[in-house]
Design a protein around this nucleic acid. Structure first.
Length: 350
DNA sequence: GGATCCTTCTTCTTCTTC
């Protein structure tokens, strides 16, 4: 590559390295795919130039040495500044690797005949010890990068909409999410309305959620055996709680399901930020909670769109779930013992 | 009745060219 750049330069053509690489690759491919007879050298009078070729090829000492090339580089580009390599720390491991699964519970392959979905209301009565929630823990343990981008986004939005405008915008986003969840509760509770054969009649829903319901209709076709809806789960040992959106079978697999609304498309799981951690946290809590007799090791994040565009359904299989569970345990550790690194977050632009 | 809780969302470089 290095030499090629020079050759191109010496030929009087300044070509950026990346471009010259492409040229190089192209020429190699071209040479390999083209018949030899088309070689531009085939018409060269080799007899005439044989002495020149011999003299070049027989030269024992190249005019260019690594040292001369280095000196030339230093003159043209300046001294090499080596980038600071990121420190290769060992990946963090939770201090206590608490299990996601409950060894006393079997993984069900078939569903027992059950009544309506479980729905355990949150009960934070007076005198009960405070138990932090999944949302609170995730919010308070955001990485410096996450905090930075969120804060920057907020500043930009306020600059555009004003304080009051931004407040109204945020409230509207929350309202859409809440309305969508309310509609889903109705759909999932009255199972007959969406079981196979019965198409969802979106016009039955309030206009503001019709698009979202349309968006998830293809996902609902694969949802069966709803076991829990908007139900509180609390981890018996790790002492945190949350409210799980839904537990049901998706394509035959028992899952913790999280329904989301989004303005932006989220075609990849990585677009959902901490959502996978959220469902891992719920799954672990449910698996240890005595109010539930089964356990879940898979998850599903469904991102619905207001304009009715088909929702993205991101499956989190058991293997992925156990990875997210470990990360969740780290966030839980950070929540209980905040680390000083969080204070080193860069400040957003003004 | 009022206060609080959980959840509802929000982030990922940026520009040019075709």
């Amino acid at each position: 590559m290095f030499v090629l750049s020079r050759v191109l330069f010496c030929g009087g053509v300044m070509v950026p390295e990346r471009t010259s690489l492409t040229v190089c690759q192209f020429s190699v491919v071209h040479r390999l795919t083209s018949p030899r007879k088309n070689s531009p050298y085939s018409s060269v009078d080799s007899e005439r130039y044989s002495s020149l070729v011999k003299s070049v090829m027989s030269s024992r000492i190249s005019s260019q040495t690594p040292e001369s090339l280095q000196a030339e580089d230093d003159q043209v580009y300046g001294p090499v500044v080596k980038a600071q390599m990121p420190s290769r720390n060992e990946p963090r491991v939770p201090k206590i690797l608490y299990s996601l699964l409950n060894s006393e519970r079997a993984i069900e392959t078939e569903d027992p005949e059950t009544g309506p979905p479980t729905r355990i209301m949150l009960n934070r009565g007076q005198g009960r010890p405070f138990v932090p929630s999944v949302t609170r823990i995730l919010q308070q343990t955001l990485s410096p990068e996450q905090s930075f981008y969120l804060e920057r986004w907020k500043r930009r939005m306020i600059a555009e909409l004003g304080e009051e405008g931004f407040k109204a915008y945020s409230q509207n986003l929350f309202k859409q999410g809440k309305d969508f969840h309310a509609a889903l509760e109705g759909i999932l509770t009255s199972a007959e309305t969406w079981k196979s054969g019965n198409l969802l009649e979106t016009s039955e829903f309030p206009p503001e959620v019709q698009g979202y319901v349309q968006s998830i209709s293809h996902v609902l076709e694969d949802v069966r055996a709803v076991r829990a809806i908007e139900s509180t789960v609390q981890h018996s040992a790790l002492n945190y709680l949350g409210i799980v959106d839904c537990v049901a079978r998706y394509k035959g697999v028992l899952c913790v399901i999280d329904w989301k609304t989004s303005e932006k498309p989220k075609p990849f799981l990585s677009n959902t930020y901490d959502n996978p951690l959220q469902i891992a946290a719920y799954a672990g809590a449910l698996n240890s909670d005595d109010n539930y007799k089964y356990q879940v090791e898979n998850g599903l994040i469904v991102v619905a769109y207001k304009d009715g565009t088909p929702a993205h359904a991101h499956q989190v299989n058991a293997e992925l779930m156990s990875e997210y569970w470990k990360t969740w345990l780290l966030r839980l550790e950070d929540f209980r013992e905040p680390r000083s690194s969080a204070s080193s977050s860069p400040s957003p632009e003004k």
